[in-house]
Computed example of a mutant assay.
Amino acid sequence: MKYQVQENCLTIFLPREVDHHHAEEIRKNADMVIEKNHIKYVIFDFERTEFMDSSGIGAIMGRYRLIRLVDGEVWAVHTSMRIKKILTLSGVTRIMQIYEEEQR
Score class of each variant (00 low, 15 high):
residue 49 T to A: 04
residue 21 H to Y: 09
residue 6 Q to E: 12
residue 54 S to I: 03
residue 11 T to S: 04
residue 53 D to S: 08
residue 3 Y to I: 06
residue 22 H to C: 11
residue 91 G to C: 03
residue 77 V to C: 03
residue 71 D to C: 05
residue 28 K to N: 10
residue 103 Q to A: 15
residue 10 L to V: 08
residue 86 I to L: 07
residue 2 K to L: 09
residue 82 R to A: 13
residue 91 G to V: 08
residue 74 V to S: 10
residue 43 I to G: 03
residue 96 M to L: 01
residue 97 Q to A: 15
residue 101 E to K: 07
residue 42 V to W: 04
residue 27 R to S: 15
residue 90 S to P: 03
residue 65 R to H: 13
residue 19 D to N: 12
residue 22 H to V: 11
residue 51 F to P: 01
residue 39 I to E: 02
residue 68 R to P: 02
residue 56 G to R: 05
residue 40 K to T: 10
residue 37 N to S: 11
residue 8 N to S: 09
residue 75 W to N: 09
residue 72 G to H: 00
residue 96 M to W: 02
residue 85 K to S: 08
residue 37 N to C: 13
residue 61 M to G: 12
residue 22 H to P: 07
residue 25 E to V: 15
residue 76 A to I: 07
residue 59 A to R: 03
residue 89 L to M: 13
residue 36 K to G: 08
residue 103 Q to V: 09
residue 33 V to S: 09
residue 16 R to P: 05
residue 11 T to A: 04
residue 92 V to H: 06
residue 37 N to V: 03
residue 43 I to M: 02
residue 93 T to H: 05
residue 71 D to E: 12
residue 104 R to G: 13
residue 47 E to Y: 10
residue 66 L to S: 14
residue 24 E to A: 15
residue 79 T to C: 14
residue 14 L to V: 12
residue 48 R to L: 07
residue 13 F to S: 03
residue 54 S to C: 14
residue 56 G to D: 03
residue 93 T to W: 06
residue 12 I to T: 04
residue 61 M to W: 05
residue 32 M to A: 14
residue 27 R to F: 13
residue 83 I to D: 00
residue 44 F to C: 04
residue 63 R to W: 02
residue 92 V to M: 05
residue 30 A to H: 10
residue 43 I to R: 07
residue 85 K to V: 05
residue 63 R to S: 04
residue 98 I to A: 06
residue 72 G to A: 01
residue 72 G to K: 00
residue 73 E to P: 00
residue 68 R to T: 13
residue 33 V to G: 06
residue 2 K to R: 10
residue 80 S to G: 08
residue 18 V to F: 06
residue 57 I to H: 04
residue 102 E to G: 12
residue 38 H to N: 12
residue 27 R to W: 12
residue 83 I to A: 03
residue 52 M to N: 01
residue 8 N to F: 00
residue 75 W to K: 15
residue 72 G to E: 00
residue 75 W to Q: 15
residue 89 L to Y: 10
residue 82 R to E: 12
residue 47 E to G: 05
residue 47 E to L: 06
residue 56 G to Q: 04
residue 25 E to I: 13
residue 85 K to T: 09
residue 19 D to M: 08
residue 87 L to N: 01
residue 41 Y to V: 11
residue 49 T to N: 06
residue 88 T to E: 13
residue 53 D to R: 07
residue 95 I to Y: 09
residue 83 I to C: 01
residue 85 K to Y: 08
residue 77 V to W: 00
residue 73 E to H: 05
residue 47 E to K: 10
residue 29 N to T: 15
residue 98 I to E: 12
residue 73 E to N: 10
residue 41 Y to A: 08
residue 52 M to A: 12
residue 34 I to G: 00
residue 8 N to Y: 08
residue 88 T to H: 12
residue 76 A to W: 03
residue 96 M to D: 00
residue 16 R to Q: 11
residue 10 L to R: 03
